[in-house]
């Protein structure tokens, strides 16, 4: 049995060996490792960069009260970004799988087209979902645009689903049966959280309050960005984005309102990216 914490250790070890800076998660709620400023800002502009980190991700609509063996409100990604994308990045990635203990000759490996898009971030990329014996274990993406800006050079993003991969490695079908370490299971660590947050997301969250917060975060984000404080400004973009996800899960967003809210979050993301590029002298100054 390979535990979650052992897998994470190996991931860090492997990618540190490939020259990546090993960063830590960002301390705000978010839906994907891509939203960590470590990725969001670093992919912009010409400076080479390489880092890797664990990112806890919250997706309110995926909550299943701790009862579904594979779907959870909060899971963990291991995010690797390298700019510019190296020529042998796929081979490096496959070596990482072998390093985690997968004998590729004994499994069915496929790179299936899956183009990633995050409308709220004004970001999209081209790539694959990596399938191992039918399980999607990784999203592999060449970033083409982020915050509405074309990216050159191009960053490659490798996102491992830590739980998925760990389940695969241990041939375990139920996420809660994974072991975090030798003494504690994933269920010990996470089931109660899943239950409570599912209740929260689907029925307990205060719609009125969250609606108000969305507007306030949006206003605060714009105010801070217009003062060129792109880092704190972007924090409020992240907060607005998560509030949107909760409201969405809570069933508080109508079809027509949904598009509008997505557009509003995207505007914040695009302005954040712009302010970062302004600070680097890469685009002309303009307030939003």
């Amino acid at each position: 049995m390979i535990t979650i914490q052992e897998l994470i250790r190996k991931m860090k070890e492997f990618w540190a060996g490939e020259g990546c800076l090993i960063a830590e998660p960002y301390d705000l709620e978010k839906g994907a490792g891509t939203m960590n400023p470590e990725t969001f800002f670093r992919v912009l502009g010409p400076k080479p960069y390489a880092s890797a980190y664990v990112e806890p991700c919250r997706r309110p609509r995926d909550g299943r009260y701790g009862e579904n063996p594979q779907r959870v409100e909060k899971h963990h990604q291991f995010q690797v970004i390298v700019k510019p994308s190296p020529e042998d990045i796929q081979e490096k990635y496959l070596r990482s799988l072998e390093f985690f203990g997968i004998d590729l000759k004994k499994h069915d490996l496929k790179f299936e087209e899956d183009n990633w898009e995050a409308p709220t971030l004004g970001a999209w990329g081209v790539g694959w979902q990596v399938m191992l014996d039918g399980t999607e274990i990784t999203q592999f993406t060449y970033f083409q645009q982020s915050g509405g800006f074309e990216l050159k050079p191009v960053t490659v993003e490798i996102t491992y689903g830590i739980e998925r991969l760990c389940m695969f490695l241990n041939r375990i079908g139920n996420i809660y049966d994974l072991h975090w370490n030798e003494r504690f299971t994933y269920g010990d660590m996470r089931r109660e959280t899943e239950k409570q947050f599912s209740i929260f997301n689907y029925s307990a969250a205060n719609i009125e309050l969250f609606g108000k917060w969305f507007n306030e975060c949006e206003a605060e984000c714009v105010r801070l960005l217009n003062n060129d404080l792109y880092l704190p400004g972007y924090d409020f973009c992240l907060k607005a984005s998560h509030i949107f996800n909760v409201l969405d899960a809570r069933g508080a967003i109508s079809v027509s309102a949904r598009q509008d809210l997505i557009k509003r979050v995207r505007r914040l993301a695009i302005l954040s990216a712009r302010k970062y590029l302004e600070s680097q002298g890469l685009v002309e100054k303009k307030n939003g």
Binding site: P84, S85, V126, Y142, Q144, V154, V156
Partner: peptide, 9 residues
Amino acid sequence: PKSMKWGDG
């Protein structure tokens, strides 16, 4: 139908 850039772009 859908193109991409990589590396130095």
